[in-house]
């Protein structure tokens, strides 16, 4: 048994010329499950809740309270909550799905070689990058709406004096670094957890991987939380008309 680590998600099969990777395959099922689940929830919502509804309500209301605690109460929280909460719940579902045991054993022949059927959905950089892009686009749109297009542009391209020009350039780099760090944080953590688990399983199949499994479980929850909260924090920073805009670059 050789250790087969691939940075990219493995292609399972092709529909026409579209490569269907294992992450996209499972992304689709999780997506469908969440969609159908929300329809069912909408239909079965009652004023006097059952057990499942109670749990869902608790999760959503806790998430909403947390959102309000960071961005402040009112319309802002209501506007931004869907994006942040979806990121959290989706990433959490994806991450926890990877901990259903027995997945590593199932492989599929895609014509060229044997590839694993299951792969942690978030360890697909394309998906994470797109989610980050949604966040970044939202941040920029919020910033433009709040501060107006001209002062928004002025933040990055300021020819008043060399220092301000330099700081504006740094801001620009900071925005790009935001994309990189936000996306690679989630991808890196989950992928590293996968690789670590695989390596440990390869080296010592019994008992030794357990602590790493728990660590990975913690990482799965924490990274979902961190991704959503960073989105929230960035948006709340962009939504404030700030004087010290230079200081918030980076992260």
């Amino acid at each position: 048994m050789g250790l087969n680590i691939s940075l990219a998600p493995e292609v399972l099969f092709y529909i026409g010329s579209w490569p269907i990777t294992n992450t996209f395959f499972w992304f689709f099922w999780v997506w469908l499950a969440l969609l159908i689940g929300s329809f069912i929830l909408r239909k079965n919502l009652k004023l006097v809740p059952g057990k499942v509804q109670n749990l869902i309500e608790m999760l959503i209301s806790a998430a909403y309270d947390f959102t309000e605690s960071i961005i402040g109460q009112g319309k802002k929280a209501k506007r931004i909550f869907p994006l942040v909460a979806t990121q959290f719940f989706f990433v959490l579902t994806c991450n926890l799905l990877a901990y259903i045991p027995g997945q590593a054993a199932v492989t599929l022949n895609n014509g060229e070689k044997m590839v694993p059927l299951f792969r942690s959905i978030v360890s697909d950089y394309g998906l994470v990058f797109m989610m980050t892009m949604i966040t970044v686009i939202t941040i920029q749109v919020v910033a433009i709406i709040v501060s107006g297009p001209f002062s928004y542009l002025k933040k990055f391209l300021n020819f008043a004096n060399p220092l301000k020009f330099f700081l504006g350039l740094m801001d620009l780099i900071g925005e790009i670094a935001k994309i990189v760090s936000l996306s690679f944080r989630l991808f890196g953590n989950i992928f590293a957890g996968e690789v670590l688990g695989a390596v440990m399983l390869f080296l010592a199949p019994f008992f030794v991987p357990l602590p790493f499994l728990f660590l990975g479980l913690l990482t799965a929850v924490v990274q979902a939380f961190v991704f959503a909260v960073l989105t929230l924090v960035f948006i709340s920073m962009a939504s404030e008309i700030d004087e010290g805009a230079e200081s918030k670059a980076g992260a």
Binding site: W31, S38, L41, R42, I60
Partner: peptide, 9 residues
């Protein structure tokens, strides 16, 4: 997914 979850959940 974001829209549907917002609208229905």
């Amino acid at each position: 997914l974001v829209w549907v979850l917002w609208r229905f959940a």
